[in-house]
Computed example of a mutant assay.
Amino acid sequence: MSSAEEEAYSEERWQNWLSRLEDEELDPEDEDSARLLLNLQDDVAIAVAKIVTDYDDDEIEQEDALEELADIREVVLAEPDIEDEETLMLVDGVQTSLVAVFYSAEQYVGDGVADEASVEEYVQAAAGAEADEDFDRALGLAACAGTRIIDGDDLDMSVTEDLEYGLVTEWVNGLDSLQSALAQPEVIEDDE
């Protein structure tokens, strides 16, 4: 079975991660908890990167790639059934970071690479839009930065140093996971 015929990311896989998070005593200050959350985020980013790579390699058609991305987005961004408030909040942070990953991949497959600015310029513009409370525009600009990352441009995380913490910094965190996934698409086992 080729990678194009396999399901890119299953609901079962996502639920396994959520169950594992519920079983852990998550503490965002704890290195193991932080690593577990980052592994969850990276795992999804790897699935997205594989779809984009398969699309670039002509292993799947545009329509199929967009459908697979939409399927993963639906699974990952659904309201999780988690009792613990703190765990729910931490998962919500991961979901927020992944929003830009999905929109970047969908924009890349659907419309190609945004070429009017650099990754850093798009991130700065997104931060400006967020400051103006134009969140749709901010997300669109973050997705433009993401298309450039998918196309091979580098995201230097120092771009966030002067940004006020908010949606854009969360989204850039997700784009960093996407950049890592594109560079090293190693599957992270959800039982590690």
Rank of each mutant, 00 (worst) to 15 (best):
Q184S: 10
V113R: 11
Y55N: 06
K50V: 08
T96H: 02
A126L: 02
A145P: 07
T147V: 07
L21M: 10
L66Y: 01
E121H: 14
L178H: 03
L175V: 10
T53V: 09
D151R: 12
F135E: 03
S97T: 05
G166F: 09
A181W: 02
D54H: 00
L37C: 15
T53R: 14
E6G: 08
P185L: 05
A65N: 09
D154H: 01
L182Q: 12
V168F: 04
Q62N: 09
P80E: 09
D153W: 08
D134S: 03
Y9E: 07
D57I: 04
D190W: 13
I188F: 07
M1F: 09
D162G: 04
L26R: 06
V44D: 07
E29C: 01
G152A: 03
R73L: 05
L37R: 10
V109Q: 03
E59A: 10
E86R: 15
L21T: 06
I46V: 15
G152Q: 04
A49S: 15
L141A: 04
V91E: 00
A145T: 11
A100I: 09
A143R: 04
V75K: 11
Q184M: 10
Y165T: 15
L90H: 07
D162C: 02
G93F: 10
L77A: 10
E74N: 14
D57G: 13
Q179H: 03
Q15H: 13
A105G: 03
L167T: 06
L66I: 14
E11A: 14
T147L: 03
V168C: 05
L66G: 03
V76G: 10
T160F: 06
D92E: 12
D58Q: 11
V159L: 08
R137I: 07
L98Q: 06
A78N: 12
C144L: 02
A34N: 13
S19L: 03
A49F: 08
R148T: 11
E11K: 09
A78S: 14
A78Y: 04
